[in-house]
Design a protein around this nucleic acid. Structure first.
Lengths: 206, 206
DNA sequence: GACTTGCACTGAACAGTGTTTAAAATAGAG
DNA sequence: CTCTATTTTAAACACTGTTCAGTGCAAGTC
């Protein structure tokens, strides 16, 4: 039985997040539970409720962790990459990273926010940082005056990449995982030509 | 208490699937359970285990239902639509349909297949029928000899559309639902120009 | 040093989940 | 009317996230 001052609040939080990260990375969110996390770090579940509001807060922390890792990896891998070649590299990077961190990345794209809850500001900022990499990669296709259009195009490209990567092995809409890289390249093929041919978008009024 | 011959096997199956459809449509898969379905149709959960292998089989049936409905709706709405205009209509159709049937469509794209289980053949065929609509819409961009490339492009476009539509309200990667239509059009903007400019893809060797 | 206060921590309980087991009820056959 | 085979069920099992009441420890005060 863990004693009162064996670990501080912060230590317990760090231990719990590390344990949740391990559990989720290895077997997916479905196999993780607050009871398993508690058992793993040698405390009772209730101790975690003294440190976290609920299990969802632990999951958010794990999701933030994988965003941090993506931002760090992208910073070194995609530094200054732009245009056609930059977009191919970006696509490869995204496919590689989401495949390597499959279970945790699913938190980011598929985990459902419990109703009544909202994402912490820090999380939203990290999400925007990820989008920033795509925005920079397509930057030179857009004049500065078209920042909004550029932003929307970055979001579209990101969502499309996500679609290509997420429709994979286990969902009811099966595409073999090995096809992801090829489909991502096809996406960039079409997208990049589209961008090069019409640097100023033809945006259709709806 | 339901009597033995109140309902045949088939009737119970139909009742259960209808109830699950209602529960999921209204509140999402998270709020549906085999116990609620059983209570809803006036039987015990175990009765459902006499008719279905497990709860997953009921969910698959609901997912097949929404695929059926999409195929029926697409057959009337997208009949003969091709090329640029056809793709805009297809995108609008997809956005509209997945928004209207949000909770059930999430089954198709996000529900995780339990390990050891595989999708029934009928399901795979319906999934292919959906892809068929996209393939036909891009048909005239590809010569008959490039059927494989056309197929892959259709899958890519579908996955991208899915990405744009799925990254929405409740997931940890938030895009406001009202943006979906606009992003889908941006996607088609780029994609269509890409297709028109290079009818024979530039496929990059990897 | 003893006493009180307050917090950390706990096992147990609550309301759920999918699923299995064993027993009861029923329908049809002989 | 009895026997058998099947349908149906309540109860149990092993889980889930969360809440509650109670224990034990550490620090603050006298």
């Amino acid at each position: 039985m863990a004693r009162r001052s064996d670990h501080s609040r912060e230590e317990i939080a760090a231990l719990a997040i590390a344990s949740a990260k391990k559990l989720i990375s290895e077997n997916g969110i479905e196999e993780a539970s607050i009871r398993k996390v508690a058992g793993d770090i040698g405390h009772s579940p209730v101790t975690l409720y003294n440190v976290f509001e609920d299990f969802y807060e632990i999951i958010i922390a794990v999701a933030e962790g994988v965003l941090d890792e993506m931002i760090a990896a992208a910073s070194t891998d995609l530094e200054g990459k732009q245009g056609r070649e930059g977009l191919y590299e970006l696509a490869d990077f995204y496919v590689r990273f989401t495949q390597l961190n499959y279970h945790r990345w699913r938190l980011v794209t598929e985990y459902q926010l419990p109703k009544g809850k909202s994402l912490p500001q820090s999380y939203v900022e990290k999400m925007n940082a990820v989008l920033g990499f795509i925005e920079r990669a397509i930057k030179h296709y857009f004049p500065e005056s078209q920042a909004m259009e550029r932003r929307k195009t970055a979001v579209t490209l990101w969502a499309s990449l996500h679609g290509v990567c997420s429709v994979s092995s286990n969902s009811l809409a099966r595409i073999p995982p090995r096809a992801r890289r090829e489909l991502a390249r096809i996406l960039v093929d079409r997208f990049v030509v589209g961008l090069e041919e019409t640097p100023t978008p033809v945006s259709i009024a709806s």
